[in-house]
Design a protein around this nucleic acid. Structure first.
Lengths: 366, 366
DNA sequence: TTGAAAGCGCTAACAG
DNA sequence: CTGTTAGCGCTTTCAA
């Protein structure tokens, strides 16, 4: 910058102005500066700029390092560029779009190791605010960071009391599963259902199970306090295993098999579809199968999977809107108007995004 | 940082060490610093760090601001969270993965307006190196930036002579379309084909057309010097229009309609599928249809679309590998070993990623 | 091991 | 409209 200033015979302040506020510089001067910059290959340092102005114009997103979900090693056509669009991809897309609208760039990183020097720390230090997928960053670290810049938590409920002040966006897990269950119960007249959860029972899964129970209870159908089965991981392989286990168990106990299997996510449901096919069990004629998430794959499988679709993209957008508002409120700029959601300083926002049941073939609708 | 230093009774230099090189500080001191940092809610400033150390630990990606490809307003189930995974999404995914492996975060931004203060400029100023999708950034700006940091150009051929020194990665467009055409000609015995390009004829499209011509020529099939039709934009709507136009033209001229329509991308081909269906033309029985890209949608449509799959994800990974190597070579670190591709300072790398023909129903294979 | 001091490249008041 | 002058928060020799 000093070089540019010297070469164009102005002060560094003027060079700065040319980039920040071009109209405050005489056309002629501006051209001279720009020309010099070009000749010298000058690229303004975002770092220096950020340091001096205390803002980066960048928003961040941290998500878990989840290695690719398996494909039950059934390696189809989609070896590499598979159609499966991950959660994080959708959120990224939503955030990128919204960020762009507001003139922000997006910095993304999967949390690798923890401790100082984690990618998350790097992100936190380089953005004006960021979103985190639940359970990605240790609570304590999050707490510290959220003291310096706006943080919004995505998917998954408000965590421990430590993080009460964080904005947070989730989807209507409970409601979705409840509606789905009700559909099976009321519209398809099923009555013997099974819910397959996960070992850890993430908050999301727990909420879904609650919805399941609520619907059963409302319909007067007996239902246990815990999922009928908990898969170690929510993968296709485990889904397949779960379906087998459920059927084997019924056979061993001499009880009739369930008429419907409700999986806590699509991945498992898809795996179950395969397992049932292998056993010669017809879906949905013999057993209805449902998932949760609405991943693209759910529409590709045969029978197409009935599921609950989550608006991940909107979640990303909402996250950005929230962050932008927090930032506006922070530096006095903006009154909070112009958006459908208004935040008040100090008052954490909690958004619950609506979901919708996709009735497809696997429950007998398609 | 000063606060942390004071509170823990050390100098700022020590605080710095705790984060950069923990082992160089006595355990006891370290703990004291970390504790203070926690209490104060200290988050190291990436900006200051970057400014002082002249490196950010972030790689960037700039892609075009292409608004969402239309869906021919046929608003199916996929209103919002559609399965369509864009090019950029795949590249982002590939880059993110690779970047993560190397300890980098990824900064992404679609180029909005040009000039100073564009998002691209922001990206360039905040990263150690970045990738650009061809035709996203004005040549001149790119030239300037590439003088300061490594830039790799994605998809699309080497641009003007100005950018000869840039690394660059493309896919085998010509080869792919040639194979595809050969397949239609030789395996399906078609002979009257039509190629639908685009108005601007991007380098990619041009390459595909070359492949088409080459295959035709090799088979002794007459072929024009220019595409049979150029769609204004490569959208579904235009693809539909193109199919109609081609058929109408043949009818008007009293010539037999083409036996195969080769579209320059999947979007158009999908649109054509719809148009043909509306006209009662059977695919592939009456006319074969092919696309290019291998977007997820191509597998969803009926008949499934025969196309050429591009390894976008790998392209993202390759881009990162290239950048990382350039950076390593720059600061002396790393010898360039450890990767399958080795770059030499000053010598631009040019990668051509392989593609594969996906033979599906729309050409009569499925 | 730790501290002191000199910037990194830019913005942001203020003066002119 | 343009120049001056302080820092922004951290890394980094060089000493101690």
């Amino acid at each position: 910058m000093y070089d540019v200033a010297e070469r164009s015979g102005v002060s560094i302040a003027t060079v700065s102005r040319v980039y920040r506020n071009p109209d405050s510089v005489r056309q002629q001067t501006r051209d001279r500066v720009l020309a010099a910059a070009r000749e010298l290959g000058y690229v303004p340092s975002g770092n220096a700029r950020g340091l001096a102005s205390r803002s980066t114009g960048v928003l961040g997103l941290c998500f878990p390092d989840s290695s690719d979900p398996d494909t039950e090693s059934e390696a189809g056509e989609s070896d590499d560029d598979d159609a499966a669009m991950l959660y994080s991809d959708q959120i990224i897309r939503g955030m990128e779009r919204a960020a762009r609208r507001h003139g922000y760039a997006l910095l993304i990183a999967a949390s690798l190791k923890v401790g100082p020097e984690s990618l998350v720390a790097k992100v936190a230090g380089r953005v004006d605010g960021f979103a985190v997928l639940a359970r990605t960053v240790p609570t304590e670290d999050l707490e510290v960071m959220s003291r310096r810049l706006p943080v919004v938590m995505l998917a998954g409920p408000r965590e421990s009391e430590q993080l009460d002040h964080l904005d947070h966006i989730e989807v209507a897990n409970e409601y979705g599963e409840r509606e789905l269950t009700r559909h099976l119960l009321a519209d398809h007249g099923l009555s013997r259902l099974a819910f397959i959860g996960s070992a850890e029972d993430s908050p999301d899964v727990a909420a879904r199970f609650r919805g399941y129970r609520a619907a059963c209870a409302a319909a007067g159908v007996p239902v246990g306090d815990v999922p009928d089965l908990r898969a170690p991981t929510m993968t296709q392989a485990e889904g397949a295993r779960a379906a087998d286990a459920l059927l084997d168990r019924a056979a061993a106990e001499g009880t009739p098999p369930p008429q419907g299997m409700l999986f806590a996510n699509d991945q498992m449901a898809v795996g179950a579809l395969h397992a049932l096919e292998r056993r010669g069990v017809r879906v949905p004629d013999d057993i209805a199968v449902t998932g949760f998430d609405g991943i693209p794959l759910s529409r590709l499988v045969r029978p197409a999977l009935t599921t609950v679709r989550q608006p991940m993209r909107r979640m990303g957008e909402a996250a950005v809107e929230l962050l932008v508002q927090r930032l506006a409120g922070r530096n006095g700029t903006g009154t909070g108007a112009g958006s459908d959601l208004t935040v008040r300083p100090g008052v954490p926002v909690s958004l619950m995004l609506p979901v919708s049941v996709a009735r497809r073939a696997s429950c007998g609708c398609g």
